[in-house]
């Protein structure tokens, strides 16, 4: 009887400890820019580019050290479109034309129009976590809602640039501008 009581207490304590632990550590959230970077990379793998001879895929980041580092970590040693990803930090928005994809970070909000102007009509995927990025003309806009990262897509823009967003990507998007 006593042993069973002890066991019950033990079970109770273990569950309680586990709960506390998971409350303190288990739910330890990822910082949003790490997840945004991972989704930016992942989403890019659901895009089809026109065929080229190049073996590297240039991913340009217009942003601060934090966002550049996060994208670099997310793309480290990975491939997009069967090409090895090379992440570069853009000093000037005109350099965006050299890239296959660009990410404009929230810290560089004022550079978005210029980056979009430079890449207009070119097969360059434009991603950003600036609020209303897709309404402003980016192809994939990432944002945080209810403590989770979500994204919207602008098919009108991607079509104009001859990029094909997969139906799965469009399906997962929270909102879609244009039709596939």
């Amino acid at each position: 009887m006593r042993a069973s009581l002890l066991l019950r207490i033990l079970v109770f304590v273990a569950i309680l400890a586990g709960m506390c632990e998971s409350a303190v550590y288990g739910k330890d959230p990822q910082t949003s820019h790490e997840v945004i970077a991972a989704i930016a990379y992942r989403a890019s793998t659901f895009v089809d580019w026109p065929v080229t001879d190049s073996t590297t895929f240039v991913f340009g980041v217009i942003g601060d050290q934090t966002s550049f580092g996060a994208i670099q970590r997310a793309c480290d040693g990975k491939q997009i479109c069967n090409r090895i990803v090379s992440v570069i930090r853009l000093q000037d928005t005109s350099e965006a034309r050299k890239c296959n994809a660009i990410f404009v970070d929230e810290s560089e909000t004022e550079k978005l129009p210029s980056a979009l102007a430079y890449t207009k009509g070119l097969p360059i995927l434009t991603l950003s976590d600036i609020p209303s990025a897709v309404e402003r003309g980016a192809m994939i806009g990432l944002f945080v809602a209810d403590n989770r990262v979500r994204f919207s897509v602008n098919i009108k823009q991607s079509k104009a640039s001859k990029l094909k967003l997969s139906s799965r990507l469009v399906q997962l998007a929270k909102s879609v501008i244009g039709t596939n």
């Binding site: 998971s22 550590y25 288990g26 739910k27 330890d28 959230p29 990822q30 910082t31 949003s32 820019h33 790490e34 997840v35 970077a37 991972a38 989704i39 990379y41 992942r42 989403a43 659901f46 601060d64 934090t66 966002s67 996060a70 970590r73 997310a74 793309c75 480290d76 990975k78 970070d105 929230e106 810290s107 976590d129 945080v144 403590n147 989770r148 990262v149 979500r150 799965r168 990507l169 997962l172």
Partner: peptide
């Protein structure tokens, strides 16, 4: 599992990534 290294995040699928709880951006 929850304490996955940031590096491994990109191995997760899109819908898994979209279920990860994040803190407000500290940018």
């Amino acid at each position: 599992l929850a304490q996955q290294d940031a590096k491994d995040l990109a191995k997760l699928d899109l819908d898994q990534l979209m279920n990860i709880e994040v803190t407000a951006a500290t940018k």
